[in-house]
Design a protein around this nucleic acid. Structure first.
Length: 798
DNA sequence: AGCACGCCGACT
DNA sequence: GTCGGCGTGCTC
């Protein structure tokens, strides 16, 4: 028997199956989807078995045997193995990358080089001996100081090099105490009356006969120590057993179960449409304005799917995967829900994943990668906020969860629901063409009016001599809320707002020495940092160019706004939420709950506050500058701005108190801003579509972004140029190729970056042509130190 | 991607 | 004369 193995090496020439002999003792155990340790050249690596067959094209005499089987149960099922092949073609990635992204990171291999003793200890050089006294091997990283000695022994063969492969996190085991179910047995046990601890424990046990309890919990509940437990175990009152367990992030919380809400008429119509198609691979676009009750439709549809004995996946953007959100699912589906988000440790994610694999749960709520949940009997996939760019992974494999969802829906004959208040133009266009079925919710569920949105012309403010970042009306409105004891959310578009350092004498802006980008000032660490390569240096006191002392910090990060706010309304209690204040685990929810409890008057933050914020006392939302996303050199700039403004305005007036929104802009007449004011999606869609048509961008054209990097500017420009000429010669005449041109950030980490853009409507040869291009790169440019990366359907083209 | 093999310069 | 630099070629 022969196994085809995709080996854990992400490199072009290795991106294909390698055949291995299956040793006799493993032949009854191996299955496709299991992980194996295999010899690969001079080393050992992990790999995935993708197929089992009887014969190999490869010279049978040169076949190597599988070294070790890592799983007893496959970690990937046939569907996922098949999907990896599909992803490889769709996203132009290595098959190994596709396979790896489907399993929890805890199962990914950890490689550790080490030196293993291969002769009696006395045979090796004396200074080395102490390293091998305890164990017959030493980790490479622990022996750097005797590297040369080791090398000599390596030459003599008294020591051999080896790679230890282990997975990152194992199954958690706990000590379970099984109390005997026989009361007579307990009563027959004699305890000396002065052994007070044992008396206490015995009393507890008599009340809990036949129960199994984790030892740490028993210690807490009975108020005794571990030796006491062991004492009674010896006397036969209980048995101890190490058992597999799950790490439970919500351990102590008891969640009250809740019933379905009554659907409004519009909700009911949408629900019925989906219910009718529960066993068809159909995609719905659920377009409902903010607050229209999409979540309730999701919940009830999932309920329906569970009743049919099937499973459901619910994807949400990472950023809105808040405790509020997950709670709502736990309330409805209890223990049948697994939650996967970035706040969990690798071990916790692994445990949630095992619950899915073992079919102990029926619903998964999670971010992007939860789309790979190994369900066997999928009945429904939902993508909430389907327009969110976080559904596209921005490194290999550059997959879009929406595409994977639709692919899976075809495998399982189940529907996909794409939900959004501001659908992506791609999805809405497909709905218009009838590829997706459009479902619309026009009213808010509780019938609240949309918040009143004011657009403030900041040019006017400037003309009137107001140079601060708060317009007069906004400042006025903030003061008003403070008096009324209502809450304010201030929103700052982070992009384009990083604080930099400028010399007022010579105009120098501090740049990263490795990248063509200015350094960002971080007050918490007093460092200037580069966000692209990680370079940092202390904040200078004089200008590095002209030594002038007149340097100052520019830009308006949230910290800067906070300072200005303190001048404007000194009495206000302000909470700031940005990357700096949410770095620690759980900080995000802490800030939100503090705000929810009314511990602050103003919440000031970036993107991350745009979602999931649902507090009744917020009556004012201020957008400090709507322009920052609007003027980015990207075809999605207007779409993103519209989505953001709609999203942010939706935070105000979600309950009884009416909400008001102030949007400050230097281009207040732009359609993305004026149409977001009243959430006029259709007119926005029409307008933006005509822009896309004129400029040849999605949904009218598909886009591929190809990026080249090299240490040398002329070299990379040359390769990019050759590539474009090759593509032009191979692709059809109607396909447009833009570039090559230097990337927006032309140098990162001392490597120059070039890119080109392919825009096409129909290009059946595309996958093949791209593979050809990769071949050229592999045979000629790779060894010269160039990199090439391909992004199919990029979310942005900057 | 690693790792070994292989062919040319500065050291014991 | 050897240690070691990194070019190039292979991995079932």
């Amino acid at each position: 028997m022969i196994a085809e193995v995709i080996v854990d090496v992400a490199a072009h020439p290795i991106d294909r199956p390698f055949d291995y002999a299956i040793p006799l003792h493993l032949q009854v155990l191996v299955e496709p989807g299991m992980r194996v340790k295999v010899p690969f050249g001079p080393r050992k690596v992990l790999g995935f078995i993708t197929a089992i067959k009887e014969t190999s094209e490869f010279d049978p005499a040169r076949l190597k045997p599988i070294h070790e089987l890592m799983d007893v149960v496959p970690v990937l099922n046939d569907e996922l193995l098949e999907m990896a092949k599909w992803m490889k073609i769709q996203t132009v990635c290595f098959e190994i990358d596709a396979l790896q992204v489907m399993i929890p990171s805890a199962l990914r291999a950890k490689y550790e080089k080490r030196f293993v003793l291969n002769a009696p200890l006395e045979d090796i050089a004396e200074p080395l001996r102490r390293y091998f006294e305890k164990r017959p091997f030493v980790r490479s990283q622990d022996a750097v100081e005797v590297y040369d000695l080791l090398k000599k022994e390596l030459g003599r063969g008294t020591i051999v090099a080896d790679t230890d492969i282990s997975q990152q996190t194992a199954v958690k085991k706990v000590r379970m105490i099984h109390i005997t179910d026989s009361l007579e047995k307990l009563e027959s046990i004699e305890i000396r009356p002065n052994a007070k601890q044992q008396v206490k424990l015995m009393a507890y046990m008599k009340n809990h006969t036949g129960k199994a309890i984790e030892s740490s919990r028993l210690q807490k509940e009975a108020g005794v120590s571990l030796p006491t437990i062991y004492g009674l175990v010896e006397k036969g009152a209980a048995t101890i057993n190490n058992e597999e367990s799950y790490r439970d992030p919500l351990l102590e919380a008891t969640i009250e179960q809740k019933q379905s809400l009554k659907l409004t008429e519009a909700q009911q119509t949408a629900f019925n449409a989906i219910e009718r198609s529960l066993n068809t691979p159909k995609t719905f676009l659920l377009h409902g304005i903010t607050g229209s009750g999409k979540t309730e439709i999701y919940l009830q549809t999932i309920d329906q799917v569970l009743k049919e004995g099937k499973e459901a996946i619910m994807l949400v953007p990472e950023i809105s995967l808040t405790p509020q959100m997950t709670l709502r699912f736990k309330e409805r589906f209890g223990d049948l829900v697994a939650v996967l988000h970035s706040g969990l440790s690798a071990g916790e994610k692994y445990d949630e994943w095992r619950k899915i694999q073992r079919a102990e749960v029926k619903v998964v709520v999670g971010a992007r990668s939860a789309i790979f949940a190994p369900f066997q009997n999928l009945g429904l996939i939902i993508l909430d906020e389907e327009h969110e760019s976080s559904y596209k992974q921005d490194d290999s494999p550059r997959y879009h969860a929406r595409d994977v969802a639709i692919w899976r829906s075809e495998q399982h004959n189940c529907p996909v629901i794409l939900g959004s208040a501001t659908p992506s133009l791609e999805s809405y266009a497909r709905a218009q063409k009838g590829v997706y079925e459009l479902l619309v919710l026009e009213k808010r569920a509780k019938n609240q009016p949309l918040p009143d949105v004011q657009i403030i012309d900041m040019r006017e403010e400037l003309r009137n001599g107001n140079r601060s970042m708060f317009s007069v009306p906004l400042a006025e409105a903030i003061r008003e809320r403070l008096e009324r004891k209502e809450q304010v959310v201030l929103f700052l578009n982070k992009r384009g707002y990083s604080s930099f350092v400028l010399c007022r004498d010579c105009g120098t802006v501090m740049q990263c020495p490795n990248c063509d980008i200015s350094l960002t000032y971080h007050r918490s660490s007093e460092l200037m940092k580069c966000h692209y390569c990680g370079y940092d240096e202390p904040v200078p006191h004089t200008c590095p160019e002209c030594e002038s002392e007149h340097i100052r910090f520019f830009g308006t990060g949230t910290q800067k706004v906070e300072e200005e706010l303190a001048k404007l309304v000194p009495e206000a209690r302000v909470l700031r939420m940005d990357v700096d204040t949410t770095r620690n685990k759980g900080a995000h929810e802490k800030i939100l709950s503090a705000f929810g409890e009314g511990k602050a008057d103003i919440l000031l933050g970036t993107q991350m506050i745009a979602k999931g914020l649902d507090f009744p006392n917020i009556t004012l939302v201020g957008v400090l500058s709507a322009d920052t996303t609007l003027h980015l050199p990207d075809f999605r700039a207007a779409e993103k701005t519209y989505q953001l403004l709609t999203q942010v305005s939706g935070r105000a007036g979600r309950d009884i108190l009416p909400g008001e929104v102030y949007v400050q802009s230097y281009t207040p007449e732009h359609y993305a801003i004026t149409l977001a004011k009243d959430q006029l999606y259709e007119p926005f869609y029409d307008q933006e579509m005509s822009m896309r048509r004129a400029s040849g961008y999605p949904p009218y054209y598909y886009v591929v972004n190809i990026q080249f990097t090299h240490e040398d500017l002329m070299t990379v420009a040359g390769y990019a140029d050759q590539s474009v000429r090759y593509l032009q010669s191979q692709l059809s005449a109607s396909t447009i190729i833009i570039g090559p041109s230097a990337s927006l950030i032309a140098r990162v980490n001392n490597r120059y970056r070039y890119q080109c853009l392919i825009k096409y409507k129909k290009e059946p040869k595309l996958a093949d042509v791209l593979q050809q291009l990769i071949k050229i790169y592999r045979s000629e440019w790779l060894k010269k130190g160039a990199t090439l990366s391909i992004d199919m359907n990029p979310t942005s083209v900057m």
